[in-house]
Amino acid sequence: MAGWGDAPSTAAVTVLIADDHALVRDGMRSLVAAVLGEVHCLEVDDGDALMRAARRHPGARLALVDLNMPGMERGARLAELAHVHPGLPLVVISALTSPDVVRRTLDIASVHAFVPKSAPSVQISAAIHAALLGHKLPFAHRAPQARRPEVVLTPRMEEVRQLLRQGMSNKLIARTLGISEGTVKNHMSEIFKALQVSNRTQAAQLDAERL
């Protein structure tokens, strides 16, 4: 794992991590390494530093960006970054999740996902995979709670359903979780049965928390 002063190896993927909280950056760095393997992380803590890092490292493959850190003007600088570096895939990770903020952010062509800071790690992992593959994920709105009998899903089934909520296909879910597409289909069938639903849309929208 490299920092600001180290030169990345030829095999390492360069990722920009932009957040003004060191603990958040530490978590993102660990998660990126878990998803991508050998990685060269460049960490910045404000909008100006992010712009400089993107300019100095044109080969960066991905940027994880907090909208609300200093110098981002509550996200306005994101459009500038996308304009100057249109080939840099962006994943926004933010506590600002109002519908207008989410819509304006996802309208930016190089933003591939908007992930709330409260999201589980599997959702961030899915966003990283999608960005590197050139896919754009819809924002995972939390559906209103629907009363159902107590539902118990295995941890793996919960992961599959979380990725399903991101609008991912079975193929992309399989790639994200490192399992076969056939296994994803089997999990999907079990999820439908457990939630008492008949299709992917219902499974994604239904709140399966214990009542």
Results as ranks from 00 to 15, higher is better:
residue 3 G to K: 09
residue 6 D to N: 07
residue 7 A to T: 07
residue 9 S to D: 06
residue 13 V to Y: 00
residue 14 T to G: 03
residue 17 I to T: 01
residue 23 L to F: 14
residue 27 G to Y: 01
residue 30 S to F: 04
residue 33 A to T: 06
residue 33 A to E: 11
residue 36 L to M: 08
residue 44 V to R: 08
residue 44 V to H: 08
residue 47 G to P: 05
residue 55 R to V: 07
residue 59 G to C: 03
residue 59 G to Y: 00
residue 61 R to I: 01
residue 61 R to G: 06
residue 63 A to S: 12
residue 63 A to N: 09
residue 63 A to H: 03
residue 65 V to R: 14
residue 67 L to R: 00
residue 69 M to R: 06
residue 74 R to A: 15
residue 75 G to T: 07
residue 78 L to Q: 04
residue 79 A to W: 12
residue 84 V to R: 15
residue 84 V to P: 04
residue 85 H to C: 12
residue 88 L to N: 02
residue 89 P to K: 05
residue 89 P to N: 05
residue 89 P to S: 05
residue 92 V to M: 12
residue 93 I to S: 12
residue 93 I to K: 04
residue 99 P to V: 06
residue 105 T to D: 00
residue 106 L to C: 00
residue 106 L to T: 00
residue 113 A to S: 12
residue 117 K to V: 08
residue 117 K to W: 13
residue 119 A to N: 02
residue 121 S to V: 06
residue 122 V to P: 05
residue 127 A to I: 02
residue 127 A to F: 01
residue 128 I to D: 00
residue 132 L to I: 03
residue 133 L to M: 10
residue 134 G to E: 06
residue 137 L to F: 08
residue 141 H to G: 15
residue 143 A to Q: 11
residue 145 Q to V: 08
residue 146 A to L: 14
residue 149 P to Y: 12
residue 150 E to I: 13
residue 154 T to W: 13
residue 154 T to C: 09
residue 156 R to G: 14
residue 156 R to F: 14
residue 158 E to L: 15
residue 163 L to E: 08
residue 163 L to Q: 14
residue 164 L to A: 02
residue 167 G to M: 07
residue 170 N to W: 07
residue 174 A to M: 11
residue 177 L to F: 01
residue 179 I to A: 10
residue 181 E to N: 12
residue 182 G to H: 13
residue 191 I to R: 09
residue 195 L to T: 06
residue 200 R to W: 04
residue 200 R to S: 04
residue 201 T to S: 08
residue 201 T to L: 10
residue 203 A to V: 03
residue 205 Q to C: 11
residue 207 D to N: 12
residue 207 D to E: 11
residue 208 A to C: 10
residue 211 L to D: 07
